[in-house]
Computed example of a mutant assay.
Amino acid sequence: MTEQTKPPFAATHILVPVDMRHREVSRLAVESAVYLAGLSGAKVSILTVTNPLGTHLTEMPEARKPDFEAFVAEQADRLGHAITPLFESHEAVNETIQKVIKQHGVDFVVMATHHPRLSDHLFGSHASQTALHANCSVLIVRGE
């Protein structure tokens, strides 16, 4: 890599936390991460966090895992880059993202966000919480 094409950061592992309810915006974050990984030679992981109780009392979180893994495989095929799926079940999404950053040696996070709702002004979005508390750089992309 020449000095002109060398990225200004040394990312080795890029994490993309996604909300499977917002796939289109998540695709933008994945595309951005894969682009950056191509420049830096980093590996890419996609994380989703499900509620341990599921969306209904009769649904276990593992029921969502095949759909998530299919999404990751689709993105890897579409973008021509290896992507590791990370499926977690926890009530606190922000805590889980921080835990995964530490456990997996993540040094760069790319995540999508939406236009703020009232609750985001009060509590902050997952993206803003990640940017505030992560011990690595965070790139936030806004979808339409």
Rank of each mutant, 00 (worst) to 15 (best):
L118W: 15
T58V: 05
Q75N: 14
Q4D: 14
I14E: 01
Q103I: 00
K99C: 04
P66I: 04
D120M: 08
C136D: 10
S40Q: 08
T5S: 14
Y35S: 01
E62S: 13
G38Y: 10
H90V: 02
V18H: 10
V109D: 08
Q75D: 14
T96K: 15
F123V: 13
F87N: 01
A82D: 13
H81F: 15
R23L: 13
L132P: 09
A73E: 15
A33T: 03
F71G: 00
R78W: 11
M60K: 15
D19A: 05
R142G: 07
Q4M: 14
L15V: 11
G124A: 11
T96S: 07
E24N: 12
F123W: 09
E69A: 00
A73M: 06
V18S: 05
R142E: 07
P17E: 04
V18P: 07
A70F: 04
E3M: 12
E91K: 14
M60G: 15
A33F: 10
H90R: 13
E24I: 09
V16S: 02
V30L: 13
T48N: 11
R64N: 12
F108G: 04
V138G: 04
S125W: 09
F71E: 01
S45V: 06
N94T: 04
D107C: 02
E31R: 14
T2K: 03
V106M: 05
F9C: 07
S119H: 10
H13N: 05
A29D: 07
N135W: 03
V106I: 12
H81Y: 15
L86D: 03
T50W: 06
V30W: 14
R142S: 08
L36W: 08
M20R: 02
D120T: 12
L36S: 06
I140F: 05
Q75K: 14
N135Y: 07
K6C: 12
S45T: 05
A29Y: 09
S40P: 14
E88C: 05
A73L: 12
K99D: 13
G80I: 07
I97V: 10
A63V: 00
V141E: 13
R27L: 07
E91A: 01
P17Y: 10
A37N: 08
K43I: 06
L53P: 00
V109S: 09
P17N: 06
A112L: 11
P17R: 05
D67I: 06
E91F: 14
A92S: 11
V16I: 08
V72G: 00
R64I: 03
V30A: 09
E62P: 04
A82R: 15
M20K: 02
V34M: 09
V100D: 08
H133I: 00
P8Q: 12
G54H: 02
E91Y: 13
G38T: 10
F108A: 06
E31S: 12
S45C: 03
S125Y: 06
M60W: 10
E95M: 15
